[in-house]
Amino acid sequence: MTTHPTEKRSRFDPEPIARRDFLGLAALGSMFAAFALSLLGMLKLPKAAVSASPAKKFNVTLPDTLADGEAFIPPGRNVAVFRDAQGVYAISTICTHLGCIVKTSAAGFDCPCHGSGFQKDGAVRKGPAPKPLPWLKVSLNGSVLTIDEESTVKSGTKV
């Protein structure tokens, strides 16, 4: 919209957008923008950049008396370590259903919470567990094993 430069606008003429409306909208808009931005900032807060949890890598020495296929549970860890003719391997004992701790049994592993059952190699035998128990990465250093609870390996990997 163009107005003639010499033509004085009357104060009764309607403005393209009323000044008060503009100021009001600007105030409202900036308020919402500030609100949205600060909300975004606040939403970032609950997720920590670094998770506070104990180290997931630990060393363990298996007792000499450990029999073939018998589980050894390192103290304070939710891991079962086995040794047989092919080598050493570690299976997580955290149920893949809802995170209870499975117990070793004759058939393999059994979960007390919702009745999931796993075979000796961690494959699902029964119950609601959606996935097999993961095998964990084991590195051998003489007789000391280093187990990393965070890295999983293919089922059947023995060292």
């Binding site: 809802l98 701790i101 007390p112 919702h114 959606p130």
Partner: peptide, 26 residues
Amino acid sequence: NPMVPENPAKAPWYFLGLQEIVSFSA
């Protein structure tokens, strides 16, 4: 005790209906 789950581990009663169907599919 993070090493040994309560057996059975039950939620408050009003969530046990949920826990019942959770035992089929999480």
